[in-house]
């Protein structure tokens, strides 16, 4: 029950999904859609584990007064407020009225979006320092990396004059030809690797998802 049943479930459900993929029939499509809803629903229930984990870790930090425990209060309060407004003060569980709640919308527009956009834009500075280290032309391949990155970065530079048009065309060619060849090789490698791993999971060779006991 603890180990054999999960292995049997993985094998039978994956076999069912593989078989239904090759049967273009209405019943097969219905099974596909129905089971996709299953994993969606199970996934959402699993998300509750993540939220509970966040609450538990934050509560433990506050209780034991660990370093920076005050910020955990910010996390918990903001989590609670977002849920409170999202359910429109717990008045609308089964209608989408909560999504129109003014505070919910404002929290999203004026807090979540600016912070997330600023965090991503902050990476511009760190990526620049990473570029300095990565772009030292100490070999031919490193020079190729440097030159192609520089061309792509300079392609929209308005100060390049007539050279700019050539730069843009070169960047477009780099992105659409050598970059495409590299990407395709990587995607094929990832595809073959993921199918091999999926087969190992299906056949019970890879079973780390079961845990230890």
């Amino acid at each position: 029950m603890k180990r054999q049943l999960p292995l049997a479930l993985v094998f039978s459900f994956s076999l069912l999904m593989i078989i239904q993929y090759f049967i273009p029939h209405d019943i097969s499509l219905y099974v596909n859609e129905f089971l996709l809803k299953w994993i969606y629903i199970i996934g959402i229930f699993a998300m509750a584990l993540g939220i509970w984990s966040l609450v538990r870790v934050s509560m433990a930090k506050i209780k034991t007064k660990k370093e920076d425990w005050q910020y955990s209060i910010v996390t918990l309060v903001s989590l609670f407020l977002m849920i409170l407004f999202g359910f429109d003060f717990f008045r609308h569980f089964f209608s989408a009225e909560g999504l129109k709640n003014q505070m919910f919308v404002h929290f999203f527009d004026y807090i979540l979006i600016p912070i997330q956009a600023s965090m991503f834009s902050l990476l511009a500075f760190f990526i620049a320092s990473a570029a300095y280290r990565a772009f030292r032309a100490h070999s031919i391949v490193a020079t190729l990396l440097l030159v192609s990155a520089l061309i792509v970065m300079l392609r929209f530079n308005p100060y390049l004059g007539p050279v700019g048009a050539y730069m843009e065309k070169t960047a477009s060619w780099l992105l659409n030809v050598p970059n495409l060849a590299a990407k395709r090789a990587i995607v094929i490698g990832i595809g073959l690797g993921s199918v091999a791993t999926a087969l190992k999971v299906m056949l019970g060779i890879e079973r780390s998802y079961l845990g230890k006991d």
Binding site: L5, P6, I18, I42, V195, M202
Partner: peptide, 15 residues
């Protein structure tokens, strides 16, 4: 592990 196995089984079968 049971719902996890079903989740993984469906995902693997699709992938």
């Amino acid at each position: 592990r049971w719902p996890m196995a079903i989740y993984i089984g469906i995902g693997v079968g699709l992938s």
